[in-house]
Design a protein around this nucleic acid. Structure first.
Lengths: 226, 226
DNA sequence: TAAAATCTTAAATTTTTCTTACATTTTCCT
DNA sequence: AGGAAAATGTAAGAAAAATTTAAGATTTTA
């Protein structure tokens, strides 16, 4: 696990490093926020421990910087202040936990572990969810689609369309909605792009043209899977 | 992990318990050798920390008792004595490590972990297990790869990529994920580094360019080994 | 049956991946 | 330390696959 440690008090940073190395973590230790930013942009971090009071950019700013980059790993803030106001601020801008100095290093280790556990638990993809529709099986994780246990090779867009329809089983989805969800763009002129893709999916699913089993067209509205 | 802790000095036993509980271990704490023997016979232990100086049966005897029962989990001995003679005796009759009092609890924790690691590493077959994929055999332990019993020389990065794909057999792995797992760095601009390595691995595995047997490309998503 | 909506098809376009050659870095060996 | 060999990275054009476009055919609905 790659852990960023930022504290301009050398002793504190070294202490944290010592204890976390003992847990077999890889530590990226820095005494300035500039170094921290460098690591944030070059290393695939899994955790950050940030001191609130650092020269120039403080810990809160670094925390915000991390979150603004859409990085979601846990962050623990360290501070000498005991004021509750800071605590609230720290947490609201995206930190996961907050420890006041002086702290028991073991407590820090325990909190790091706890936060890491929560995070991996939440992000664990091991429980892959599959969607079953009659003879059709869609596995988002494996990006796979089986028709009566035989793999159907779908292109990325085809897969996304089928997945969206399957996720909204029973509901009619308009071409416009499909387009905006799959392409993540605004649906402007009504081209028949979606329709062509639907056509290909049906073909690959060996649908009866006249009476499709999976993707049904709802006239004047859109498509749906029952 | 179930840890037996035996010390007739209540404070020491409690201290050890406290620190080890923090590591998420289950502690079977006892102040007498009789209790210890009871646990040895009823609980599936993974580790023991024994004080040498205990009334009636001492730690050495308990250690011998454990080994005589053909139990192989690690044992750490604690003692107030500083004599080397004891150290030797303790180790020869089957203890794995030896700590003199007073000790730093963190050092104890570190030694427990180290001993546990050595033990599981030695006993855990899964770590040195090989991965077999059709005619391909990957040995993580030996960092070797055999194709129909003929060694294929892979560079470190090539090996890591192949291993990661093999470990995630059946799942599609994106170039980005591969890069971050193998290089342990952030994937920034989409260079084709991963692709070139995949190309070289395929070449060494004598893959049919048009229809690879092992590493398949999933268009728009990534690579996978079935 | 006529208009509207959807389907089908094939060709044009775009995107993604592959290949190759070469540049750079690291490692190994005197 | 210095040079050779191996490993790794980069870049550009080729190839393959996916996607879009467009135009005519078909189906549905009123």
């Amino acid at each position: 696990m790659n852990v960023l440690v930022l504290d301009d008090e050398k002793e504190i940073a070294d202490l944290v490093e010592l204890y976390l190395k003992n847990e077999n973590y890889t530590i990226y230790k820095c005494y300035t926020s500039e170094e921290a930013i460098k690591y944030i942009n070059t290393v695939k971090l899994d955790f950050a421990i940030l001191d609130v009071m650092v020269k120039r950019k403080n810990g809160f700013e670094i925390c915000k910087y991390i979150r603004d980059k859409n990085l979601t790993f846990p962050i623990i803030m360290l501070t000498a202040k005991i004021e509750d106001k800071d605590k609230i601020t720290g947490l609201t801008i995206g930190a996961d936990d907050y420890i006041t100095k002086p702290f028991n290093p073991l407590e820090l280790v325990a909190r790091v572990k706890a936060a890491a556990r929560r995070y991996t638990k939440y992000n664990d993809k091991s429980e892959e969810e599959k969607i079953y529709i009659d003879g059709l099986e869609i596995s988002k994780e494996k990006h796979k689609c089986l028709l009566y246990d035989k793999e159907i090779i779908l292109t990325p867009i085809e897969f996304d369309i089928l997945l969206y329809l399957a996720n909204n089983r029973g509901n009619v989805v308009s071409s416009e909605e499909l387009f905006e969800k799959v392409w993540k763009e605004k649906y402007l002129d009504n081209n028949n792009t979606v329709m062509v893709h639907i056509r290909r999916i049906r073909e690959k699913l060996k649908e009866d043209t006249r009476k499709p089993k999976y993707i049904k067209t709802v006239w004047g509205v859109g498509y749906k899977i029952e």
